[in-house]
Amino acid sequence: MTAGPIITPGDDRPGSLWRDAWRRLRRNRLAVAGLVILALLVLVAAFGPWLTPYDFLSQNLDARNLPPSMAHPFGTDDLGRDVLSRVIYGARTAFLVAVLVTAVALLIGVVLGAIAGFYGGAFDKGLMWVTDMTMSVPQLLLVVVINASLKQPITLWMEARYLETLNPIYRNSAIIDFVLVFGSMALISWPPYARLVRAQVLSIRNRPYVTAARALGLTNRIILTRYVLPNAAGPLIVAVSAGLGTAMVLESAFSFLGIGVNPPTPSWGNMISDGLRVWTNYPHLLLAPAAVLAVVTVAFNFLGDGLNDALNPKGQK
């Protein structure tokens, strides 16, 4: 199929809906602030190793629980590790989790939601039943149950595989954490995407331009990918922006509860959890990661709101 401009000479207005939306987004100060904060987060996460003043693991037992100073802007923790460095590494964890979980959830949600909305029938009914069930159970509870019930059998299975094959990959317990935490987070995150995509597809599949495409004899696959899904993208982008923020908070919540990323890998959640125990004596250990998490969450909300207004200009004041 064709893509991009076919005829170029003499055209003076390569206009686009996305360009208009981008222009509206730029005029929204809060959204721009959110975007800038998140861009900084991405940079910090990407270049973390070069930015951190100290190694996030190296302990200095002579400098434990120091308050913020020039040498340690966020102070040090109970093992004398630099808190700023750990917050920066925590950003890598948070970002990795958020992007991976959202990407997996989005993929599942878009594929299932699009098929259900476009073709309907028994598949649609079944999918709606599954999403209803998943969404009606409290998220944290579901993750705790999955982790608690699957961790043991998977560990035993991996142990057995190792004894069979002697492949060292089966000894790496971090993989179990990773798969279980990310897997269970993706599992509870995809139903809202599926429902959103399905609702969008349901309304778009009866638009006249879809009927027009059918009248041209185009196949369902082309109609779905080129006519239906691109027009569902707007609300989906807004949902993804909000979903990334939610995934970060979720990861922190799991780590806080001890079922997420395990120490010594820094995560904002387990830092908050550690800081909470000593916050009366060393408040900076709690405040630093909590403040960063709060700022990032608010930034995602600002961006999500801004995107919503930019992509749906009719709802604007």
Partner: peptide
């Protein structure tokens, strides 16, 4: 072939006119 009533909604808003015209020819 068919031409519909409402020209505002029978064209895919995410496709350029050139793409919309080329699609049936290539397909």
């Amino acid at each position: 072939q068919i031409v519909f009533q409402d020209p505002y909604s029978t064209l895919n808003p995410r496709m350029t006119i050139g793409d919309a015209l080329a699609e049936p020819i290539l397909f």
